[in-house]
Computed example of a mutant assay.
Amino acid sequence: MTTPDAPQNPPAAPGGWAPPGAPPFGTPSGAAPASSGAYAPPAGYAAPQGFGMPAAPAAPSRPPAPSRHGSGLGLTALVLALVATLGATVGGAIAGFNIGLGAGKGLAYLPMDGSWDWSILTPVRDWVLLGEVSFWFGTVLGVWALVQGIVATVSRRGRGLGIAAIVVAAIGPIVFGGVVQGVLMSGLAAGTGIGG
């Protein structure tokens, strides 16, 4: 049921019926009628913010394409890490045992007052030099392998091999220190005659 005050039909636009695409009250003053029959906003009119065509959806992201360079960078990093760890450990172990063997007697006769006599290492100075060279050889190659492994991992040029190189280069100093200390103690025990 309708109220008596409300009009039944809205009033017609002046000038007759207008198609849905045309302005409701004719052409605005000063504006030329659109030649295609489509509605054109009046001059100086700007649409309110937030209105308009929705933005096109963003293209789905794709994983980066595999590198064409192959896995040579990661493989090189892994080989460097293995050479650094094994080479330094073997060289340090040989040097450590011979240092302990040659300096064992001098250490056994060293007074317990806390003083240290560097002349104890004189007979084994060549082995001490080999131990130092092994340490620095492993350090330089290990750092190189670590950096190259990180680059290979980030640039996806042998990512798995690069991660393996990072792990081997990181545990290399631990392996070196543990093995050299154990072998040095064995050499000292054999050099002093404590073991039997």
Rank of each mutant, 00 (worst) to 15 (best):
S61K: 09
A58T: 12
G160E: 11
L141N: 09
T122G: 12
G104N: 10
S186D: 15
D113R: 04
L129T: 14
P33T: 13
G131P: 04
F97W: 10
A56N: 12
S134P: 07
G182E: 12
A93N: 09
N9I: 13
M1L: 13
S36R: 05
S67F: 05
P33M: 14
A43E: 13
A18N: 12
G106P: 08
G178N: 07
V143E: 09
A43R: 06
L184N: 09
L141T: 08
I194C: 07
V167W: 04
F135T: 08
K105V: 11
V79F: 06
G195W: 13
R157I: 09
A169N: 00
L73P: 00
A18H: 15
G26L: 12
A47Y: 14
T2W: 11
V79P: 03
A95T: 00
G196T: 15
L141S: 08
P20K: 06
N9Q: 14
A190N: 11
A55H: 09
S155K: 11
S71C: 06
A164D: 03
P63L: 11
G74M: 10
Q148W: 09
S35E: 15
Q8W: 14
P60R: 07
G142T: 03
P63Y: 05
I163S: 02
L101P: 07
G16K: 11
A81N: 01
M1S: 13
P54C: 06
G193N: 05
G106S: 13
G195F: 11
F97T: 01
T3R: 14
G142V: 02
M112P: 02
G149R: 04
P4R: 13
V179I: 14
G160T: 14
T139F: 15
V151I: 12
D126V: 03
G193A: 02
V133P: 10
A108E: 13
A77N: 03
G26Q: 04
P173F: 08
S119I: 05
G182W: 09
D5P: 07
D117I: 05
Y39S: 11
G195Y: 09
A103C: 05
V90P: 06
A84K: 02
S186Q: 14
W144K: 07
P66D: 09
P173K: 06
A43N: 13
L107G: 01
S155G: 01
